[in-house]
């Protein structure tokens, strides 16, 4: 399990190398090498989560590809790829000469596509959750409270 940290840690025992970058007081991106997840996907996932949770509000500026790459000490192509995917999914938009910003959420996927994506996410989550030896009800309860917390929607 990854733990949040806003310090760069060096570990003698594992070859993982972590980088984090902080934006203002809100945004942190943490990437790890030697992970089964490619780096660009880690960025995508984290940004997606931050947008979903509201840490990044609509209209917030994201760092430029170059800047983020420099801060994370990774290849800019990787950041570009992550940004491209997010842009394709409609989560961010690029404004001419001004930079990259969090986009207003637009529905750009069909219902089928959205359902398929939801099923994918559920699949990933369910496998892991079930392995933790909780009952279905306990899992559902925790999902509920989490969604509430994130979206401020009751129930």
């Amino acid at each position: 399990m990854l733990t949040k940290s806003d310090l760069t840690t060096k570990s003698k025992h594992c070859t993982m190398h972590r980088s984090t970058v902080t934006f203002g007081s809100i945004m942190q991106i943490l990437i790890t090498t030697q992970s089964t997840t490619p780096i660009f996907r880690q960025i995508v996932d984290q940004l997606r989560r931050q947008i979903a949770s509201g840490q990044l509000a609509v209209g917030d500026a994201l760092p430029s590809v170059r800047q983020l790459a420099k801060d994370l000490v990774i290849n800019p192509n990787t950041v570009a790829k992550a940004y491209a995917e997010l842009q394709r999914d409609g989560l961010i938009e690029s404004r001419q000469g001004r930079g990259v910003f969090v986009a207003k959420r637009r529905v750009i996927f069909t219902k089928t596509e959205r359902t398929r994506r939801l099923d994918d996410a559920i699949e990933r989550f369910a496998a892991e959750a079930l392995s933790l030896d909780f009952s279905n009800d306990e899992i559902l309860e925790r999902i509920s409270s989490k969604l509430e917390q994130l979206t401020h929607e009751p129930g």
């Binding site: 190398h17 090498t33 030697q34 780096i39 590809v65 420099k70 990774i74 290849n75 800019p76 990787t78």
Partner: peptide, 30 residues
């Protein structure tokens, strides 16, 4: 790594490195 990425300047110049450090390779190579 920082110096190499700076040098590459997002595709302005080319870098070829031979290395065993898979961490660094994963980070900076495309």
């Amino acid at each position: 790594n920082e110096t190499l990425l700076d040098f590459n300047d997002s595709g302005a110049r080319t870098v070829l490195i031979s290395s065993h450090m898979l961490d660094d390779i994963e980070r900076i190579c495309d």
